[in-house]
């Protein structure tokens, strides 16, 4: 009954919900039982957001707990560090290097920790970090960073055909943004 657990974490407004919608669709198409658990409401206003995606033969709990995530896909560095303890021993973090200062840092009440990727690696985590925002901008828009990250994620699951990822992308993205999002996905997948 072992499930595979993927967390998508970031800051409200970064496009994590669309990414999880696409991921859920891909996994359902592979014939898995799937649960996707997300947070709506107030925390979306620039707060820390997390989506839990679980798949396998049978998924029971809708959430992923500490020490259980196979992959943490992070849209922002600090959020990767915040959710680090959810990583399973041997799991992998894929994080965007972008930094978004939270309000306590902006007001000077707290400090944004430095060298986060280095520290997460020192703690024993397998961390892949990249400037995925720059890749999204190159593909045409900073808003496509979610698809760059989905491209990175897809590369971790070689058993899932690329065509299935693209079909799911087509299904969740509005037609007029398809080229942009496909370019962003390809950039991430081949990075």
């Amino acid at each position: 009954m072992a499930c595979t657990n993927i967390m998508i974490v970031g800051v409200g407004g970064q496009g994590t919900l669309l990414a999880s919608k696409m991921l859920g669709r891909v996994l359902l198409d592979q014939g898995f039982d799937v649960k996707v658990s997300e947070v709506h409401g107030m925390s979306q206003r620039g707060g820390s957001v997390v989506t839990y995606v679980r798949f396998g033969d049978r998924v029971c709990s809708p959430v992923i707990d500490r020490g259980e995530a196979d992959v943490i896909l992070s849209f922002e560095q600090l959020e990767a560090a915040r959710w680090l303890e959810y990583l399973k021993p041997g799991g992998k973090i894929v994080t965007n290097l972008q930094k978004i200062e939270p309000m306590p840092v902006i007001t000077g009440a707290a400090v944004y920790p430095d060298r986060l990727v280095e520290k997460m690696r020192a703690a024993g985590a397998d961390v892949e970090a990249g400037d995925y925002l720059a890749m999204a901008v190159e593909a045409g828009s900073s808003k496509a960073v979610n698809m760059v990250l989905m491209g990175r994620l897809s590369a971790l699951f070689p058993e899932i055909p690329e065509a299935d990822w693209l079909a799911a992308l087509d299904a969740v993205v509005p037609p007029r943004f398809l080229d942009l999002n496909r370019a962003a996905f390809a950039a991430g997948r081949n990075a």
Binding site: A81, L84, E85, K88, M103, P113, K119
Partner: peptide, 19 residues
């Protein structure tokens, strides 16, 4: 419970904010 890792630095909270 499953074991997990963390870093020592305090992680600043990210409360929701007015847009």
């Amino acid at each position: 419970v499953p074991s997990s890792v963390s870093i020592e630095d305090p992680i600043p909270a990210r409360p929701p904010v007015m847009c």
